[in-house]
Structures are given as C-alpha cells and as structure tokens.
C-alpha cells in the first residue's frame, strides 16, 4: 500500500478517471483497511453526525471554558448578524460563528471531533455546513467532502505535520483551513484542480502562523483563529471557483510550511513561551490562573 504522497497525484488520478478527489481517497482507505465502502462511509457519516451535534450544542447551550476566557463568541456574532447585518457577508460570518462555537465547546469540555486536531476542530464542520446550505448540497455530498478534507490533511500530515507542537498553528488551524477550502470547492461542484488551488491559497495565507496559546490553554487565540480559518477557507474557495490559480502549487506550499515549521523556534510551538503567550496581559492571565507564579 502506497502512501498518499502528493496532492498532485490525487488530482491527476481524479482527472484521468473523471471522478472527485473524495472518490480516490475513499478507494485508498478501502484498500488500507481491507474494508467495504459502506463500512468506511458509515464511519465518516457517524463523525459528521457528531460534528453537526457539536454545532447545535454550541449554539443552543453555549458554555464558558474552564478558565472563563472564552465562550460567548458564537452568541455575540450570531446576534449581531441577525440584528445588524454583516460586512463580510452572512455566509462568512455564519461560518465564523459556528467555528468559534465548536472551538469554544471544545474549551468547555464538550464533545467534538478532532479535525485535524482538537484546537482546530471548528473550521471544517463550519465551512462544510455553511457551504452546503448555500449550494443546497445534501448529506451524501458533505460526507464525500469530508473524505476530500481528510485526503488533503493526510498529505499535510505526511509531508509536514498536523501538530502545533511540531509545526505551529499553521499546521493546525492552517491545515484545517486548507482542508476546508479544498472540500468546500468539491462541495460546490468545482473541479479537483480548483480544490487544490483553494487549499493552496488558504494555506499560503496563514503560513508561518505560530502556536502561542495564552497560559498554555486551547482558548486564546485558538477560538478566534478557528473563525478566521473558516473565513479564510471560504474566501480561498471562492477565489479558486472564480478561476484564480495559486502560482505555488499546494504540494509546494505544504513543503514550505514544513520548512517554516522546522526553523520555527520552540518558544512558538505550543510551549506558551513566546508570541501572544508572552505578552504582559497573557503573563498576568497565566499568573491569575495559577499556571505560572
């Protein structure tokens, strides 16, 4: 069984066979598990149900995080959208609200699906649900799009990483945004090459993003970066669907992110020793929470 080495391989194969990226990813997964299509499909469908549930819970029963730093972002943004309208457009704002809701649910010990990590769990579900509402795509198409997201995520994981401790936030919220952008293009009926361009544009825009959580907690700035990751994904998907191409192909963007991750200092990789975590207010919060003295 060969590893998925590049996005280019997947795109070429899907173009040759006139199928979607998700189809290639599902077939590979079938071979890997020696399992039937239904078994794999049902497992992903189960994950989507939990993702949907996490978005519902986040909106109906918002809870504050254990530290109290986050928890009402979804509610505020939805209220604002309903009463005052938006600048960025309803779809973008709705997706951002959902992404923050799920990320805050994670921070309040709610049940989520790591995608690719717990800290970036809001982006993919928020983008896919919002895109499906806009395009009228049904559940089957959303589940297929999740396979596309996972396929792109696997290439990132193989060639870079999907751990903030190894590569910074660019491979957590950045990876999620890249996965979501590519999946949204497929969900909207775009071509495989367009999906890859969307992923490339999304990841390029956040390459170098450091992992600098205040007091070491998955709250600040993680929750808001889920919102920006969702908005970034939708905009990148729109650009790709409009025919805008990424000059740097996705595989090379992933390679660049891997290189940036390698030279990124440890203080900016989840250790809470640099970046936003080292600001005076963050140090004060860490002391107040008893994390540091």
């Amino acid at each position: 069984m060969r590893k998925i080495l590049s996005v280019a391989d997947i795109v070429t194969e899907s173009e040759n066979r006139h199928c979607t990226i998700s189809e290639i990813v599902i077939e590979r997964e079938q071979k890997l598990h020696e399992a039937g299509r239904k078994e794999i499909w049902d497992r992903m469908a189960g994950l989507w149900e939990i993702m949907k549930q996490s978005m519902v819970t986040a909106e109906r029963n918002p809870a504050r995080s254990l530290s109290g730093l986050v928890g009402e972002e979804n509610k505020l943004l939805v209220e604002y959208m309903k009463t005052k309208g938006t600048l960025a457009g309803e779809g973008t704002v709705q997706a951002a609200a959902r992404a923050m809701g799920v990320a805050a649910l994670n921070a309040s010990m709610g049940k989520i699906v790591a995608c690719p990590t717990a800290g970036s769990c809001g982006i993919v579900p928020a983008v896919l649900l919002t895109t499906a509402e806009k395009t009228g795509a049904g559940k089957e198409k959303i589940i297929a799009a999740l396979f596309t997201a996972a396929g792109i995520g696997m290439v990132i994981d193989e060639n870079a990483s999907t751990s903030g401790a190894e590569g910074g936030c660019q491979v957590e919220c950045g990876a999620a945004s890249c996965m979501a952008a590519a999946a949204a293009v497929e969900l909207a009926g775009g071509a495989p090459a367009q999906a890859a361009h969307a992923g490339a544009i999304a990841l390029k825009s956040v390459i170098g993003l450091v992992c600098d959580p205040v007091a070491g907690l998955v709250e600040v700035p993680c929750v808001k970066r889920n919102a920006i990751g969702a908005g970034n994904a939708l905009l990148a998907a729109d650009m790709a669907l409009a025919g805008i191409k990424s000059i740097i192909p996705l595989d090379e963007v992933i390679g660049a992110a891997a290189q940036v991750g390698r030279i990124m200092p440890d203080s900016l990789k989840e250790t809470a020793e640099g970046g936003l975590a080292a600001t005076p207010i963050a140090r004060e919060i860490a002391r107040r929470l008893g994390v540091t003295k």
Binding site: R43, N106, A107, K111, C115, P116, L146, A149, M179
Partner: peptide
C-alpha cells in the same frame, strides 16, 4: 483518514 478526522473526544 480517521487519523486526520477523529478521534471523537471531550475537549
């Protein structure tokens, strides 16, 4: 794919 999407967990 389930190493990338998943696990289901309490945050």
């Amino acid at each position: 794919v389930f190493d990338i999407i998943g696990p289901v967990m309490i945050g």
